[in-house]
Amino acid sequence: MEIAEITPAHVDAVVALWEEAGLTRPWNPPAADLQRALDGATSTVLGGFRDGRLVGTVMVGHDGHRGWVYYLAVAGAERGAGRGRQLMTAAESWLVEHGAVKLQLMVRGSNAHVVGFYDRLGYADADVRVLAKRLD
Rank of each mutant, 00 (worst) to 15 (best):
M1N: 05
E2R: 07
I3Q: 02
A4G: 04
H10C: 06
D12M: 07
L17K: 10
W27K: 06
N28Q: 10
N28Y: 10
P30R: 05
A31I: 02
A31T: 02
A31Y: 04
A37I: 02
A41S: 06
T44M: 07
V45Y: 11
L46V: 05
L46T: 04
G47P: 09
F49Q: 08
D51L: 06
R53P: 08
G56P: 14
V58C: 13
M59K: 01
V60L: 09
G61P: 03
G61A: 06
H62I: 00
G64L: 00
G64S: 01
G67K: 01
W68I: 01
Y70S: 08
Y71M: 12
Y71P: 07
L72H: 10
G76E: 13
A77E: 13
A77I: 05
E78M: 15
G80T: 07
R83F: 15
G84V: 01
Q86T: 05
L87R: 06
M88Q: 07
A90K: 04
E92M: 05
K102G: 00
Q104C: 15
M106T: 09
V107L: 08
S110Q: 10
N111D: 09
A112W: 00
V115I: 14
G116C: 01
F117I: 03
F117Y: 03
G122A: 07
G122H: 04
A124Y: 06
D127L: 08
V128H: 15
A132T: 05
K133W: 14
L135F: 10
